[in-house]
Computed example of a mutant assay.
Amino acid sequence: MKLRNALAVTTTLAMTCGGAAWADGFKIGITQNNVGVDSYQTTYEKAFIEAAEANDNVDAVVLDAGGDVARQIAQMEDLIQQEVDAIIIWPTNGEAVIPAVRKAKKAGIPVIVTNSNIAEAGFPFVASFSGPDNITQGARSAEIMCDKFKEMGIENEARVVQISGQPGYTTAIERQKGFDDRLPEVCPNVDLVETQPGDWNREKSQKVMEAFLVKYDDIDGVYAGDDNMGVGALNAAKAAGREGIIFVGATNFSVGYEAMERGEYWGSIYQSPVDDAEAALQTAIDVLSGKDVPFLNYFDTPKITQDNMGDFTKPVF
């Protein structure tokens, strides 16, 4: 396997296997959302590279959009020009990338969407989505929070604030929808008083929570779209001396796991970036191999709380 990226352009690698030329393998390009924004995406990229390097039939072109929609569209154009066999895209924006995905399909290149799906209007141009069911994750987070409120006896009076992910980003939209829809079903008297974006950023989420704490004297629970943001909110509450708030996230980061060990953070959703990356690459290989691949190719993401965290390995990201 030869790995190429935007920083190092090398000559085409000729590989043979039992007399077969490299043309018998697959050239797969990936354009990621924003590798440097959090440890999940950093670990995902590392796992993807390792999985590609371990497969002698894969030539990988690994790109990072840096959170820039225009840059990601340009990367899609570049991969199409390179005539890769398949493109994996972790969308920066589920709506904005649709024309580029459509162009890839028109060029005969199957597109696999990873981690965060594109908007539904783009589904006809996608071979498969590989990743978590984000709506289910949001719903499970609502159940975790409701169960804790019932245990505390405050399910009829609790007030909750929400810190969502990056606006326009499908994962953020879906996790919020899952939480917003499920919470009134399981705890109809809980009041979700406000939602503000934290953009997957711990420092910004801490500032969002600081504003919530000034605005609301009574906050019983915080739901964050991932643990990175959730720990930012936790840090704000600790600095303000506000105790007794139940923090629930999604995508259990190591900082979330550690906060759970300390008894400061109640629960989350367990999701592995390694599983995520390996599933995306395998889905692309399966599509190119002509296998029957489901359009929505989900991997499971179970609930994790202080009560059952011993059943889970601490995340490496």
Rank of each mutant, 00 (worst) to 15 (best):
G94P: 05
G94H: 03
E95N: 04
A96V: 06
I98T: 04
I98D: 02
P99M: 08
P99D: 10
A100R: 01
A100M: 04
V101H: 01
K103L: 04
K103R: 04
K103F: 01
K103W: 01
K105P: 05
K105T: 10
K105H: 15
G108S: 05
P110G: 06
V111E: 15
V111K: 05
V111D: 15
I112L: 08
I112P: 04
T114P: 00
S116K: 00
G122K: 00
G122Y: 01
P124K: 07
F125D: 15
V126N: 01
A127I: 04
A127H: 01
F129M: 00
G131T: 02
G131V: 02
G131C: 05
P132G: 06
P132L: 07
P132K: 06
D133R: 14
D133V: 14
N134W: 02
T136P: 01
T136D: 15
G138D: 11
A139W: 08
R140S: 10
R140I: 08
R140N: 14
A142C: 06
E143V: 09
I144D: 08
M145Q: 07
C146N: 04
D147R: 05
D147N: 14
D147V: 01
K148Q: 13
F149N: 09
F149P: 11
F149I: 10
K150S: 03
M152P: 00
G153T: 01
I154A: 04
I154G: 04
I154M: 07
E155A: 11
E157I: 05
E157Y: 02
E157N: 08
A158V: 07
A158E: 12
R159M: 14
R159E: 15
R159I: 08
V161M: 13
I163M: 08
I163T: 09
S164I: 10
S164Q: 13
G165V: 07
G165C: 06
Q166Y: 07
G168P: 03
G168K: 02
E174D: 14
E174A: 03
R175I: 07
Q176A: 10
K177Q: 15
F179C: 07
F179M: 09
F179R: 05
D180W: 03
D181E: 15
D181M: 12
R182I: 02
P184M: 12
E185N: 03
C187T: 05
P188D: 13
N189I: 02
N189Y: 04
V190R: 08
V190C: 11
V193G: 01
E194R: 06
W200G: 12
N201W: 06
N201L: 09
N201R: 03
R202L: 15
E203I: 11
E203G: 02
K204N: 05
K204G: 00
S205G: 07
S205T: 09
S205F: 14
K207I: 11
M209S: 05
E210T: 08
A211I: 03
F212H: 10
K215V: 12
Y216E: 13
D217T: 13
D217A: 15
D218N: 14
I219F: 13
I219Q: 13
D220M: 07
D220L: 08
G221I: 14
V222G: 10
V222E: 14
V222A: 12
